[in-house]
Design a protein around this nucleic acid. Sequence first.
RNA 1: GCGGGCGUGGCGGAAUGGUAGACGCAAGGGACUUAAAAUCCCUGGACUUUUGUCGUGCGGGUUCGAGUCCCGCCGCCCGUACCA
Length: 872
Amino acid sequence: MTTERYNPRTAEPKWQKAWAEAKLFETQTDAAGEKYYVLEMFPYPSGRIHMGHVRNYALGDVVARYKRAKGFNVLHPMGWDAFGMPAENAAMQNKVHPAKWTYENIDTMRKQLKSMGLSLDWSREFATCDVDYYHRQQMLFLDLLAKGLAYRKKSKVNWDPVDMTVLANEQVIDGKGWRSGAEVESRELTQWFFKITDFAEDLSTALDRLPEWPEKVRLMQKNWIGKSEGLMLRWALAKDTAPAGIDDVTVFTTRPDTLYGASFIAVAPDHPLAAKAAESNPALAAFIAETRKTGTTAAAIETAEKKGVATGIEAVHPLDESWRVPVYVANFVLMEYGTGAVFGCPAHDQRDLDFARKYGLPVRPVVLPPHEDPVAFSVADKAYVDDGVIYNSAFLDGKTPDEAFEAVAERLEATQLFGAPQASRKVNYRLRDWGISRQRYWGCPIPVLHCESCGVVPEKRENLPIVLPEDIDFDKPGNPLDRHPTWRKATCPQCGGDASRETDTMDTFVDSSWYFARFTAPRADEPTDPQAANAWLPVDQYIGGIEHAILHLLYSRFFVRAMRECGHLDLDEPFKGLFTQGMVVHETYRDRREWVPPVDVRFSETEGKRVATRISTNAPIEIGGIEKMSKSKKNVVDPDDIIASYGADTARWFVLSDSPPDRDVIWSEAGVEGAHRFVQRLWRLFVDAAPKLPAAGARATPGSDDLSLNIRKAVHRTVAGVSDDIERLAFNKAIARVHELVNQLSASFGRMEAGNGGATAAAREALSMLARIVAPMMPHLAEALWEVLGEPGLAASAPWPQIDRSLLVDDQVTLPIQINGKKRGDLTVPADAGKADIEQAVLALDFVREALAGQAPKRLVVVPGRIVNVVV
RNA sequence: GCGGGCGUGGCGGAAUGGUAGACGCAAGGGACUUAAAAUCCCUGGACUUUUGUCGUGCGGGUUCGAGUCCCGCCGCCCGUACCA
């Protein structure tokens, strides 16, 4: 008998329409069922969706559909992270307005996402570039400003001196501007900041209250915030060397216990003392100018060769007046961290040691490692950073580092220097305030005005929104808002005089720091409807890329805290559960000239080796490494092509199978074909079995014969396993279980005769359950299977199958028997057998007696239900 | 540089400290077919003569037992505050 193949091209649109007409996924806040908020990180509308999106949204959709089947009231919205640089780049390159480019991309991508059959509530959709959205973001900005959580300060940017514009870090390539090629310099601008450091302590400690976050993400955030307890320690400058007007320099140190090992002080190139010293020291001034070319990124600064220049200034050791150490300006000291000045203890810090060796500074060990001889111990090229006993350190000798820390702190807190304590304890954070100013057009305008008489004045709330002007040009580099003829002109809300608008727009991370709250009441006049926000939040399951582990997630956590202070919601944390998915990667291909897309490559085998040829030109192709899909390497597979030829369910099934979702998945054509074969196999299983089954409403009772019982045990076990797997987001394992079940059902159905009422009833039960457990992953096919079974209604609204727990337990278990840790046989015992029974049975086994040769075992390890190990 | 992660057959991967390789892909063999596709069945870590021995990036360690835990390396990936 031949079965007609399942045709996703006709089936998928049909079911999508059925869901839409039933408004199945439009969520009501007050609907029945416990709330469950599933959210995937919303996409940047770059043009077309890519496989990473397919994976991200397929993962979230499984959770959403599963929870819905479990009876939850599920919120599963979608929107667009729509501001950002690519729209401006497109405007410059293709003369298309950023808004037009963005909204056209959104239209394309919405259509693509809809073809995936996602259970999204599209009625809540918005884009962050909608005036409606950024209007409310401007309100939030004013609220933060009023609470003192927004302020202005000077900070450095990458300046392209040819294009006369600020560059993003990714636009700086090897220290040069990406368009102009000019050497980039760092330049100070007054910019807007959010006071995230106000919450540093809570952002760090609250991580311990997020058990449903991956440990690695919590660790990364904790290290990023970087809490450290230390001393603010003032060093007097030796009078004969100090520049006029500066008496001392304050360092932050976490190791005051190593103070007697100090051999220099290093200050940041932009430290005031450095500037002062450079006034009379051209070599130093040149060095400081040089460091401005290193770039502003931490990676650039810290991978650069560590260099310093002596200032000629000397500082007096806080514990010994007769001891002076030189003050250097060093390129690895950051003004943003601590005080911008450190003391170097080369023996116990690797970077300080490298610096000391380079400039011939003394290396004096003061922490003696355990079991080392104080006379013989010395530090050559590896600093000793672990615990030990303090020595070479006067009154600290013999103490542990912790005790020495306390002793130094106590003494110097009590010592006066220039009328103030010489030291004070200080908790320091590596976390810096969040700079949100961008000198760009395509972002949310910062709603403040600059008035000559009143200074910086917030715009009145009722004057919002400050809308981006549409008549702009991208003919010249730089910010079009700056050179707009009229947009800047405004009236000061305080004095009524002339004022000019702020032309900085907000970092796009601001947009994505509260969108999850806006989804709970997307059309509210205020930024949130606190009732809706409090009802839905926190997001129960948030899913997105690991690349957002720190910044986006930390900013969102800050925003929730700031919004709570302003009364917009009452919430500790935005995301209760977090899952970070891996990337979709693909082989790369190139011919002599360029990267070649996978669709243009044909493979063959020559002498057992995989060989590739370019289809369009017949040129030989070199098969490159497996890399993240990217436009530049052209190793992209367009989801549209896959959906058009195999259907959305195949694409979904493929990205969910094989690779665990937190790891990278390698896209391969063969894998997709395998997934599609399984779609057809399921379809065949149902269509072929359907005529033998009792009618849908017949209430036939499954039999208790071997065949019926086997079918029932298999399916109930699978449902239990798949439920667990989905709860843990282990979709690859859920899929392996479904494969196993289908393998078994195919075999069992082959032995089933139409007249066997018990078995056919078991088969109907099995198929009805199977259709429902594949539904979250392949929702369209599940509807078709549901229809084949003649079940009423839509599979998408069918409840998750109930399992009979009595079918999950076995009365016999087979234990592997090891001798000296190596498996040598099996033993089948009753499931409830005690340790003693098992021991006895094991010792009676032939191969065990042989191994023992009459001796008693040295040891007999019995782990009931698991394993037995006989040690001889 | 720093912080975090990952590393298991030809490939993707499975394995509460307890039988390493479930499940899938690819491959090989067979059945069906005039033939092919599709489908179904069987075989696949390495070495070895049955018997075994060796195998989870490399080197050590803890344990009755290590892919899993600890220490030291190597390689790759993510982040590094203006890419999103």
